[in-house]
Amino acid sequence: MIQLAVENLGLHFGGVTALRGITLDVNQGEILAIIGPNGAGKTSLLNCVSGLYRPSEGRLSFDGQDITHLPPYKRARLGIARTFQNIELFRGMTVLDNLMLGRHVHLQSSLLIGGIYFGFAQKEEIEHRRAVEDIIDFLEIEKIRKRVVGTLPYGYQKRVELGRALAWEPRILLLDEPMAGMNIEEKEDMARFILDINEEREVTVVLIEHDMGVVMDISDRVAVLDFGQKIGEGTPDEVRANPQVIRAYLGEANGVGLASFGGSK
């Protein structure tokens, strides 16, 4: 079943074309990886889906509902969650508060009720704290729950950001380079989390990643962008054999080192 449909999407900044004629369907419950060289438009595509960019042409729909012109905070309410390439956590807040803010769309307390606190707001905070603690358990970050995020090492920050997106209880999770700058162990942990999120929580995952080993290993399907256009789509094996993709990554010299392109497994 198609959950997110991108139809003929185009994005221009002045004379610069970031995306052109992108058509892409994301099926419910799958892990879809978007790959492509630097500047191919992967993050731009994600920004269009989460609403930070307004596409110049084309249409986006989520569960059959047209979301092309919906502002970001309303898309969040539909269950579209994301992480960012350069960690965009609330650095002055604790891990707990970051995750609690992830539940912003589920909380009800108004200004006055929050200021009075005792009664409804307290009950609500405790109830949502439980949900947040589940995620803290899941991501194995119990020890740092009261730490201020800005003081945490990079690997933990990436994990907290994933936790914040999970706290939202999303239906689709957009991950922008969740493993950038990580060592092998951290990548393995992250890959495990992504697979668990996908299987146990039944969340659709759209993932941008440069590590081909990871991409080919965990994704159900792969879409390839180059210069703002989609040049290939399919299962990891299909994409790996696609000549256009090989050309985009390795240049014209045919047949050079398929091994380096995730074929080593």
């Binding site: 905070y73 969040a76 965009e88 956590l89 609330f90 650095r91 992830g102 912003h104 769309v105």
Partner: peptide
């Protein structure tokens, strides 16, 4: 982080 806050609803 206002951008992240907006993306989070």
């Amino acid at each position: 982080r206002d951008i992240a806050a907006e993306a989070m609803g």
